[in-house]
């Protein structure tokens, strides 16, 4: 069972994580946590000094964190992007597509289930920041 999953090759960031509100006032902080109602764009001027963004999912049904992740990646953030909270097997693949590269679920996940979840779908229909070639592009490469 895994209580932390990372897709990154570097070490997971151990820095203390501060709230978005206090992050602005703490020039030495490098890790920040975003709650569902908070605007990820407030971080855009400071991406250079951030090594970890935690995006909290208090309930898996609240999908605002997917947009927060996409916005950060689309804006060039390359540090660790961690989904924390009510993170379940069936959301992992979508989270990865939106740019999450580590996961800290409230309840540990079965390793085999995690592996199966990431491997389930052979292709993707949309272009996102994960860099996978969407089906519509592959079709015309093949041709």
């Amino acid at each position: 069972m895994a209580d932390f999953i990372t897709l990154r090759s570097d070490e997971a960031t151990q820095e203390p994580v501060v709230t978005l509100e206090s992050f602005a006032g703490q020039s030495n902080a490098t890790a920040v946590r975003i709650e569902p109602g908070e605007d990820a764009r407030l971080l855009l001027g400071q991406l250079d000094r951030i090594s970890l963004v935690e995006v909290n999912f208090p309930a898996y049904t609240d999908g605002r964190g997917y947009s927060a992740a996409q916005i950060l990646r689309e804006s060039g953030y390359t540090g660790e992007l961690r989904a924390v909270g009510d993170v379940l097997i069936d959301q992992l693949a979508y989270m990865r597509r939106c740019g999450f590269d580590s996961f800290k679920p409230n309840a540990p996940l079965d390793d085999a289930d995690v592996e199966a979840a990431f491997a389930r779908y052979p292709d993707v229909y949309q272009k996102t920041i994960d860099g996978r070639t969407p089906i519509w592009a592959k079709r015309h490469e093949d041709a």
């Binding site: 609240d62 979508y94 597509r97 939106c98």
Partner: peptide
């Protein structure tokens, strides 16, 4: 239809 199928950002609206 294809764009919306398994859309990762918009599956928990």
């Amino acid at each position: 239809r294809q764009w919306s199928s398994f859309h990762p950002e918009f599956s928990y609206l």
